[in-house]
Amino acid sequence: MSATAAQSVPSAPDARRNVSLRLGQLRTVIALSLRIARQGKRLWILALVALLPAVPPLIFLLTSVLFPKERTFGVGAMEFFKGTIGTVYLHVVLYVLALVYGLAVISDEVEGKTLVHLLLRPIPRWVVVVGKFLTAWLITALLLVGSLTLTYALSWGVEKDPGAWKHAFAYSNLRILLLDSSVLLFALAAYLAFFTCVGAWFRHGERFGVVFCFGWESLITYLPAKLKWLTLKYHVQTLFPHSVATARFFSLRGKPLSETTCIAILLATIVVFLALAVRSLRRREIR
């Protein structure tokens, strides 16, 4: 076939220094991963999980429409929204999305025995990891942004004044929505990178992930001094434009880290754990 190959098919360009080729391969990995994810059940199940925070304000809205005299929630829309961010999004939705999708970035290919199709192509391992990581982030980011927007809109139903929804479009409120969304998307990337690494190195990362999210991340933040710096949640909480900390009492000791430092730590988390995932793929053997 070499003879025919030389005649009819121009050989693909030398990739070693060809950035555009690598970007093309990265796009292909993303397109392939999106095609596969689009038709999986996981997407729809997690879409329902992502919509959970919108359920309480929706119920309140429906009851206030059906029983207008019972409209006594007692908090404002923004207060309700910020509270939902600090509780349901930060402690449940973020973890579930990152855990499920992050662990699956590499392990889906391993368990589905399809990784061989990628490893037999002339693509660097980092293209595989980064491509699949970006796909996972894109999907979860879409779910998260959709859920946040819906929850924000429905939160205005908790206001006593039925006409208060007009404030939903006020710059100061939209700014909080935008900043909160940005912080959560950034946090999502960090958690996804962490779980991508866990999924690449360990066969059953789920148990570790659950212990990490609902054990380590939750308990350590309640401990004094600098131990909480070892959690991702601490750095994420620092970046919110409003208070979402759950253990302010214990946070009194020690000088808090600056926003810049927290951003740097989260960025480093993304880079380091993705690099470790790439290393795992380089060492991996296909039997």
Partner: peptide
């Protein structure tokens, strides 16, 4: 589609 993706990954 499977073959197209494979070939795209090959750099075509």
């Amino acid at each position: 589609d499977f073959l197209r993706f494979s070939l795209r990954l090959n750099g075509f």
